[in-house]
Design a protein around this nucleic acid. Structure first.
Lengths: 162, 162
DNA sequence: TATTGTTATACTCTATAACTATA
DNA sequence: TATAGTTATAGAGTATAACAATA
């Protein structure tokens, strides 16, 4: 078993070396944190029948009644075509309705049902608990600084001129 | 055109309201920053024929010669099965070789070729420029604090007990 | 002509099961 | 029996083009 122990130490050392290499790039650390948060968030929302994107869409519809699909797609940074199945999902569960817009017969006025508001509130409580758990090692100042710093990213980049 | 201007103001206001709703969740802000970084990184690496994952794999092979695919998959947090096409990609471009391991005839000892080391160095310079550009609004202390904070995320979560 | 919602399509990333050849 | 690499497959997520109804 001496060889296996040596192999295990070797693997751990390789992991450390690799991690040190990767850590030098902020993008890698950001992606890693993002993946951790998303995976845990998915586990949190699964019992409600929600995904990250459907929860976010539902929350925005609850807070902003009569949003159009184009407006919602813009707020979520999702293509209009990809929003269709998201809205379908919420509608099939009876959580939102595609009402006709009084101003424009092409567009839908999205509005949450009482059931939608209820599941949104319950999921929201669970999501806040998920965030508390994932960010347990940080105090309020750390979190505020983190969010402020992250929001400064990409200001001078190629795609940001519009 | 008065109606269109009103609509534009309405959309902007909706965007702001939605953004304020989403911003309360750290997970959303982290994901947004991650997506911005990844999209710009993809544009940066595309001229080299590299993707984020193939660049990272190549860099780790350059810095850690004779890694096995299982070790590399572990370092990249990628399934072994999904690593196959990544290593295929690098091998077809002549940037790495799957050498036989002297100790275990099942495993491959991955090693970069001179061409692989060359493209890795060039891509690395471009990636560092990409990071400088994306993080232009931050000073060195901000970046160090950001990375340190992000690495504390998920300590007490469900999946972290192993 | 331009826009809204929609369908179809494709490509990437990710996750799982099963196979082979070794150990 | 367990592990390394591989194949196949399926599910998300994302991006583009085209279409009908409407503006």
């Amino acid at each position: 078993m001496g060889r296996m122990a040596a192999r295990r130490r070797e693997e751990a050392a390789n992991g450390d070396v690799c991690d040190a290499s990767l850590r030098r790039f902020a993008g890698y650390t950001i992606k890693r944190a993002s993946n951790l948060m998303q995976a845990d968030l998915a586990r949190t929302l699964e019992p409600f029948g929600l995904r990250m994107i459907t929860f976010t869409a539902l929350m925005l519809i609850v807070e902003n009644p009569d949003l159009s699909q184009t407006q919602l797609a813009g707020a979520l940074s999702v293509e209009r075509s990809n929003l269709v199945t998201i809205v379908d999902d919420l509608e099939k569960n009876g959580w939102i309705a595609r009402n006709p817009s009084p101003h424009d017969r092409r567009s839908h006025a999205l509005r949450a049902t009482p059931a939608g508001e209820s599941v949104c509130a319950a999921a929201r409580t669970a999501v806040e608990a998920h965030e508390d758990e994932m960010l347990a090692g940080l105090d309020a100042d750390d979190i505020a600084a983190l969010i402020e710093t992250l929001r400064k990213i990409g200001r001078g980049a190629k795609g940001g001129a519009s």
